[in-house]
Design a binder for these strands. Structure first.
Length: 461
RNA sequence: GACCCUUUCAUCUAGUGGCCAAGGAUAUUGCGUUUUCAUCGCAAAAACAAAGGUUCAAAUCCUUUAGGGGUCGCCA
């Protein structure tokens, strides 16, 4: 049985990096028919908000990742933590430290000046004297003072950190509120986690948490530290690099399947395969294939994937999703035609909606440059001929519209462009876009003629 | 500054001593298909961070150097 988790602190939206590590955790649990648990790390009094919790859940919902059971809130477990603190104190595995913040700062500056790694010096570790007046103590845990703290990371391999690098860190603040590394170890153990997959910014927390596991006699899970996602320049991803909020991708017109496919290939691979459905990801994911090095975030590939998923999506579903982007063709009798005419031209849902609107809404103006290029002296006559033929034609399928155009070309002994370009500008107001036959088939004869006549009118004006 | 991690085309990556004068994908460029744009098809260009070892043989193992990232809180 595999149990994994995602443990965000609710201080903002769900970040793209957080989504990737939780995706890995989720895939691994689902693959093994295990559990994927959610824990909200809200021990920090001031910075948390309920809105942030809601935002994170919303993002999970959008991408279709579900967690098992109830979310666990750390803020509701202070009594549990207090019990363990008391236990460690009793057993002499933790102790009260009366050092003031000023004294600590002074110590750090001194160590920094000497070029040492800053660490607590253990001055109250074996203190038995009378505590100084007016100092409310913190609780520190006794970390090993010599040897190595080692663990086998599922991604990075053997990690060895000298015990001297890990000091007797604080497990409870003055006032009794427990600290991160302490509660994480307790919760991970009590939630029965077998595999902890997280960002490698936590790598240095692991030895500290191992000290807690050791002191409390908990079973240690497997750790996997996944390297960070950087921007295209290889620097830390920040807001100015574009969207970092998962939900922003929805607004921008990305499909969740594309985003997940993109993220799963960032730092993970399965041979040469690029396209993964969620089912395939679940089947093929294995943390042993996670890369050691950090990867750079590159939007081009996401865009390509998004276009791929739009092209291959069922029309009913596409129509359903388009509603959120301001286009409702769910009950349009020519829904299929509209989508097959446009879906290869939109890399995002936003672009797709634009393409559809371009056809469905008659142009209100014509680009002067395009118009001049497309409309020559003989154009009105050509278009009139075309309209006459169109009125008489028997139009059963898309190709029939093409035949009418061909007839004009033949009759007038002109090139295709002589009719195609002005017709396109008349119908769309644009020089580019979907195939003319499809556009006309969508619009029907009446609307087509109406738009062409309007364009001809415009030439006379 | 100290400690830890990391380094294959512009980007994501395949690759665990011989199958690699390094493969795939995106992006780029060209050609073709298309009335246009896009899609699609074909092709081109593009990398083992550097230097030393070990070996018959190294992208793969070792050492050093350089670059990048992370951590050094009574934040999480």
């Amino acid at each position: 049985m595999i149990t994994t988790r995602f443990a965000p602190s609710p201080t903002g939206y769900l970040h793209i990096g957080g989504l990737r590590t939780s995706l890995f955790s989720w895939l691994w649990a689902r693959k093994n028919e295990g559990q994927f648990l959610l824990r909200i790390e809200d021990t920090d009094l001031a910075r948390n908000s309920e809105e942030a919790v809601a935002a994170i859940l919303k993002a999970f919902d959008w991408v279709g990742m579900s967690y098992d059971g109830e979310a666990l809130f750390q803020s509701k477990r202070f009594d549990v933590y207090a019990k363990y603190i008391e236990q460690l104190l009793q057993e002499g595995k933790a102790y009260k430290c009366y050092m003031t913040k000023d004294e600590l700062t002074a110590l750090r500056e001194e160590q920094m000046a000497k070029g040492e790694r800053t660490r607590y010096d253990g001055r109250y570790r074996d203190f038995t004297g009378t505590p100084p007046e007016g100092v409310e103590p913190v609780i520190r845990i006794k970390a090993p003072q010599e040897g190595m703290i080692s663990f086998n990371d599922g991604v990075k391999g053997e990690i060895n950190i000298a015990a001297t690098e890990v000091d007797d860190f604080v497990i409870a603040r003055a006032g009794g509120v427990p600290t991160y590394n302490f509660v994480v170890a307790i919760d991970d153990a009590q939630m029965g986690l077998t595999d902890v997959i997280r960002g490698d910014d936590h790598l240095y927390n692991t030895p500290k948490q191992l000290v807690v596991y050791e002191a409390l006699g908990f079973k240690v899970p497997n750790f996997y530290h996944v390297a960070m996602i950087n921007n295209e320049q290889g620097k830390k991803l920040s807001k100015r690099d574009g969207a970092t909020d998962v939900m922003e991708y929805k607004t921008l017109g990305y499909l969740p399947e594309a985003l997940l496919n993109f993220l799963v290939r960032l730092g993970w691979s399965h041979g040469d395969q690029e396209i993964f459905s969620v089912e395939e990801m679940i089947e093929l994911f294995d943390p042993k294939d996670i890369n050691k090095s950090s990867s750079n975030y590159n939007l081009d590939k996401l865009l390509w994937l998004n276009a791929h998923y739009i092209k291959n999506m069922e029309h009913d579903k596409l129509a359903e999703l388009l509603v959120e982007y301001g286009v409702d063709i769910r009950n349009h009798e020519k829904k299929d035609l509209i989508l097959s005419a446009t879906k290869e031209r939109g890399k995002t849902m936003v672009e797709l909606a634009d393409q559809i609107n371009l056809i469905l809404n008659a142009p209100t103006e014509y680009n002067a440059k395009n118009f001049k290029k497309a409309f020559k002296e003989d154009t009105p006559e050509i278009l009139n001929t075309f309209m006459n033929l169109l009125k008489e034609a028997e139009l059963n399928e898309v190709a029939d519209y093409h035949k009418v155009m061909e007839a004009v070309v033949e009759q007038k002994e002109i090139g295709f462009g002589k009719i195609g370009m002005p017709l396109r500008v008349s119908l769309l107001g644009s020089m580019t876009g979907s195939g003319l036959d499809e556009i006309m088939a969508i619009l029907g004869v009446d609307e087509t003629i109406k738009r062409v006549e309007k364009a001809i009118e415009f030439t006379n004006a």
